[in-house]
């Protein structure tokens, strides 16, 4: 039953996104027959270092979605403090609900079943424009972002160009 609830909800969201596309990203399925694997292309937000880039990512939903969060992994190379070197995205709304038992973090930072593909991708876009170096997934990138911004810019620029070539 749980899996069918997840299917229905994901199908609904897919339909909605096709009908009313949202600025800044496009979404579809990796394989037409598998509603649990989405392919998302995020457009680098204007006025940021990532402007002009087209970054591909895979969203994988668990069978008990929306009670557990999906994982998001960039397949395009992305140099960012909150993206692991292997592409996985580390933002607090994607952490399982049990991760923040004390509730001292802002409630809006937790995963809750109210989140949708749209709200997750919008969070990732906002992550691209304002990295959080307090809890970095890529320590090297975080250090550069803080201390050697020029080097950081160069690496990001390279990622942006690469992503354009891949189109």
């Amino acid at each position: 039953m749980a899996a069918s609830q997840a299917c229905l909800l994901l199908q609904k969201q897919l339909k909605d996104l096709c009908k009313n596309p949202v600025d800044g990203f496009s979404a579809g399925l990796v394989d037409e027959n598998n509603i649990f694997e989405w392919s998302v292309t995020i457009i680098g937000p204007p006025d940021t270092l990532y402007e002009g880039g087209f970054f591909n990512a895979i969203m994988s939903f668990p069978s008990n979605y929306p009670n557990s969060p999906p994982t998001v992994k960039f397949t395009s190379e992305l140099w960012h403090p909150n993206v692991y070197p292997d592409g996985r995205v580390c933002i607090s709304i994607l952490h399982p609900p049990g991760d923040d038992p004390n509730g001292y973090e802002l409630a809006s930072e937790r995963w809750t079943p109210v989140h949708t593909v749209e709200s997750i991708v919008l969070s990732i876009i906002s992550m691209l424009s304002s990295p959080n170096d307090e809890s970095p997934a890529n320590v090297e990138a975080a250090k550069e972002w803080r201390d050697r911004r020029d080097d950081f810019k160069k690496k990001v620029g390279r990622c942006v160009r690469k992503s354009q070539e891949m189109l």
Partner: peptide
């Protein structure tokens, strides 16, 4: 998920 359910809050993100 475990004992953290003792501190469960409303699913609405800002609540």
């Amino acid at each position: 998920e475990g004992p953290a359910c003792l501190m469960l809050r409303c699913p609405e993100p800002s609540c």
